[in-house]
Design a protein around this nucleic acid. Structure first.
Length: 181
DNA sequence: CGTAAGATGAAG
DNA sequence: TTCATCTTACGG
């Protein structure tokens, strides 16, 4: 799967509607956020550390990090090697392996399986073993010709910033599968 | 419905 | 102590 991942903001929108496949589970990406190198809330803002090192790899690297003591979040690294930028996957609409996801999530409602970055990693069974791997090695992204339709952009979630940058994107018609608040 | 707090660990 | 989170418990 070839997607132009140089421009992080464009990549965030391009990833919407793509199919993600991992661990015998599939889903459509319906919500993303862009993190730019000059953004104080970007993990890579203050430079390279052991934790965020994958963000400085070449575009298409997968960056999985552990947060709040119990959850993983998945990013797709963008821009050029040496530039710390990435797109956070925030929401997925499940299309395959749903029973496995429900088992791992201990939830039955399909809209509550992947509606949030921590949830979708748990549902897919994504953990730090996927960190610093390349798209296609473990996690795959496919273009299945899904028609995205209207894309909504607004402020990001869980980030306090004075002047909101509209770097969160989601598919309007799939908002049932998007994180709340 | 809504809001509040707890779980739980890595980094600064 | 903060954090790119989520779930559960409790009040109305």
């Amino acid at each position: 799967m070839k997607i132009d991942l140089h421009d992080t903001k464009k990549a965030a929108k391009l990833l919407l509607g793509k199919e993600i496949e991992f661990n015998n589970c599939k889903g459509i990406i319906v919500e993303t956020e862009a993190y730019l190198y000059n953004d104080p809330s970007c993990h890579a803002y203050k430079g390279k550390t052991p934790r965020n090192a994958p963000m400085f790899e070449k575009a298409g690297t997968v960056y999985v990090y552990f947060t709040y003591g119990m959850y993983f979040c998945m990013n797709i690294v963008t821009n050029s090697e040496g530039v710390g930028e990435a797109v956070l996957i925030r929401g997925i609409k499940p299309t395959g392996g749903i029973e496995e996801m429900a088992e791992r999530r201990k939830q039955t409602k399909i809209t509550n399986l992947c509606s949030g970055p921590g949830k979708l990693c748990q549902a897919f069974g994504i953990d730090k073993n996927c960190n610093n791997t390349f798209l296609g090695e473990k996690i795959k992204i496919n273009d299945i010709g899904y028609k995205v339709g209207k894309i909504v952009s607004c402020h990001r979630i869980g980030i306090h910033e004075e002047k909101p940058k509209n770097l969160r994107f989601y598919i309007e018609k799939e908002k049932n599968f998007v994180s709340k608040t």
